[in-house]
């Protein structure tokens, strides 16, 4: 039983990170109908910026958590600026172009950001300094560290705040209006360009937080880390129903837990026929099953109209 609880905890931590990144994909898709493939790279830039800042702050002798918070507070505006620039440079000029064009620029931006990061930070793995306590707590026989608790809680708080922003504020209403129909929203006095820019900036801020979480939890960051993470988060967004904010959260958490349980039990379930190298297969198998029965994802309802 303690092993099962441990696997659920592993899945929750992983899933919280997926969910935060998935939000960035789903927000942009919901409003623009565009898959922002550069989003994974924004996460990477957040992680590396934070690591650099943390490296500079460590000698100051401040306590570990304060240093990490400092790194986060530097990474967030940097990522916001990157997200804003991406939208301004690569997507806005193509707003009315055929659908394929912004998809290509998205992939292009992703490659450019990765190469720039490689030039700036080098090809090596960057390691997170050992400033946070790694001694785990025991919960029902399962181990969880302070950092992991913090990751799950922070992700939950940020996701709730985002839901509140979208459903309860003026800005949220403008975002929803733009999502439904940009042309009509514009006629109703919504500054569509501004709403789109804010969407990118918000998504990038969440990406920065996710980046710092990844770097802190796995203690490493490197220029190519965004690709796989982005792919998984994109999968999570599709699983939950892309374009749906609640769906991204659910999809992220589910994907994390499925992966974790899959890796842990697939060997026992199949009598050793499939091993933990089918971890990803297991996750994508579930995705296919969901899409067969619910083509718009678990919580996606309105996707068909937009697509």
């Amino acid at each position: 039983m303690d092993i099962f609880i441990q696997q659920i905890i592993n899945g929750l931590v992983l899933g919280s990170i997926y969910a935060l990144v998935a939000l960035g994909y789903t927000m942009v898709y919901g409003i623009l109908g565009l898959i922002n493939f550069a989003h994974g790279e924004v996460v990477m830039i957040g992680a590396l910026t934070a690591l650099t800042a943390i490296g500079l702050l460590v000698p100051s002798g401040l306590p570990g958590p304060v240093v990490v918070l400092g790194g986060l507070l530097i990474a967030i505006p940097v990522c916001m600026a990157v997200g804003f620039s991406i939208e301004r440079i690569a997507y806005r000029p193509l707003r009315n172009a055929p659908r394929l064009a912004p998809l290509i620029t998205a992939i292009g931006v992703s490659i450019v950001l990765q190469q720039l990061a490689m030039m700036g930070w080098g090809r090596n793995y960057h390691t997170f300094p050992a400033i946070l306590p790694t001694t785990p707590h025991q919960v029902f026989g399962a181990a969880i560290t302070d950092l992991q608790i913090l990751i799950v809680v922070t992700a939950a708080v940020l996701m709730s705040a985002l839901l509140w922003l979208i459903t309860r504020t003026r800005l949220g209403r403008a975002m929803r209006a733009t999502s439904e129909n940009p042309a009509v929203a514009r006629l109703m006095g919504v500054d569509v360009d501004r709403v789109i820019a804010i969407t990118f900036v918000l998504g990038s801020a969440l990406a920065a937080v996710a980046g710092v979480m990844v770097a802190a939890n796995y203690s490493i960051a490197h220029y190519a880390m965004g690709f796989m993470l982005g792919l998984k988060a994109f999968t999570a967004a599709v699983l939950g129903g892309i374009g749906n904010v609640g769906g991204a959260m659910l999809g992220g958490l589910l994907l994390g837990i499925i992966e974790s349980l899959g890796a842990g039990y697939i060997g026992d379930l199949t009598g050793g026929f499939l091993g933990s190298h089918y971890q990803d297969v297991f996750a994508f198998f579930v995705l296919i099953l969901v899409l067969v029965f619910r083509p718009s994802g678990l919580m996606g309802e309105k996707v068909a109209e937009r697509a």
Binding site: I3, Q7, N10, V13, Y218, A263, G264, G275, S276
Partner: peptide, 22 residues
């Protein structure tokens, strides 16, 4: 007692290590 697998790009080993623990 067990043979588990990962990839040369993975960073998360929590679930297979939990399996090892069991």
């Amino acid at each position: 007692v067990t043979r588990e697998y990962t990839t040369d790009k993975a960073t998360d080993f929590a679930s297979i290590l939990t399996k090892v623990k069991s």
